[in-house]
């Protein structure tokens, strides 16, 4: 496919570069891994296959060959050749079809999966773009106008239609916060962090009772929150140690930051809490100005919610691969 116009930040991402954090190499990977996995499932890919992650404004893309594609995560009102197409459906596109995005309806990051996957060189076992280290993905950078992104496989099905076609089934998932609900803040479950107990009683209450707005400084590295400064009773500096996706750190000015996909491997700020894994997907679909709330939970509940999510994904993968097989069997 060819990038006709670049978006604000379009990068190739997969499930992340793990196993090298002891070298300081941060995992990167898709912000919304769940959306990435679902989008891959829709085109019959392995869950970890590399996809294109786009923010709004997103790229305008021309397909250089027939392909089975799907869009997932955010809804930026996509069109193909000017005609609206839905997210979360498999779509067969033909050579010279043009995919565009017009307006953010909900969410912050859309994923484009292509059957067979995107062909970029793997570096340290991952195709994810590490923008800071300028490595991985497409030459270690975001996509630019006139870039040609190759697919790993030729279109595996006979091209029968003249027009692009939206296949008639949809991945059944809860969509991220829609714009109609922008007033209400979203709830995120958190687990207490190691330095949680060092927060003053008042600060603990603020953390679990207040709403927090995502500041303008919110990107793939982390979301800074606009909050009343929180206070700890910590006297000593915290010595650097590992952090994780979803870790909520307390910065020296009392503000909070939630670490996201491009977070560094280690940090020395107090870790007041961690957003549970099952909520990382909706976390990844937030943008500056959105408001959120935190509620404490326990590990048992966090794990149950994650397992439920994974089971749902597994069902979806099975259903998608069955539907695809049936569909193309009929076509032949």
């Amino acid at each position: 496919m060819k990038i006709i116009n670049a978006g604000i930040q379009d990068t190739i991402q997969d499930s992340g570069r793990y196993g090298n954090q002891h070298l300081g190499i941060n995992p990167t990977g898709a912000m919304d891994k769940y959306a990435m996995q679902i989008t891959n499932a829709l085109v019959g890919n392995h869950a970890k296959e590399a996809v294109l992650e786009m923010h709004f404004p997103a790229a305008t893309i021309m397909f250089s060959q027939s392909a089975l594609i799907a869009l997932g995560g955010a809804d930026f009102s996509p069109t193909i050749n000017g005609e609206p197409v839905p997210v979360l459906h498999p779509i067969i596109v033909n050579k010279n079809d043009i995919l565009q995005f017009h307006k953010p309806i909900n969410g912050a990051r859309v994923y484009l999966a292509v059957a067979g996957g995107i062909s970029v060189k793997s570096w340290m076992d991952s195709r994810s773009t590490n923008l800071k280290a300028k490595v991985g993905g497409f030459n270690g950078r975001k996509l630019q106008k006139d870039d040609h992104v190759l697919f790993r496989l030729a279109y595996p099905y006979p091209a029968t239609q003249k027009e692009f076609s939206v296949l008639p089934w949809k991945a059944d998932i809860k969509v991220p916060s829609s714009s109609q609900h922008e007033e209400t803040s979203q709830l995120f479950y958190i687990l207490p962090g190691f330095e949680w107990s060092q927060l003053t009683t008042e600060s603990k209450e603020q953390l679990t009772n207040n709403s927090f707005e995502l500041s303008q400084q919110s990107d793939r590295m982390g979301y800074r929150l606009n909050n009343i400064p929180l206070i700890t009773t910590l006297k000593d500096e915290v010595i650097s140690s590992a952090v994780s996706f979803g870790t909520i750190q307390l910065l020296p000015d009392g503000k909070l930051i939630i670490l996201m996909a491009d977070h560094q491997t280690t940090g020395g700020y107090p870790r007041v809490g961690h957003i549970i894994s099952a909520h990382h997907s909706k976390l990844a679909q937030l943008k500056s100005g959105d408001t959120i709330q935190f509620r404490l939970t326990d590990l048992q509940n966090a794990e149950e919610l994650f397992i439920n999510q994974q089971q749902h994904l597994l069902q979806l993968q099975n259903a998608c691969s069955f539907r695809l097989k049936e569909y193309f069997k009929q076509k032949n």
Binding site: H22, L23, G24, N26, A133, S240, A242, G267
Partner: peptide, 10 residues
């Protein structure tokens, strides 16, 4: 330790 950035040695 190595952390923070790829190859940053403390």
């Amino acid at each position: 330790m190595i952390g923070f950035l790829p190859g940053f040695a403390y």
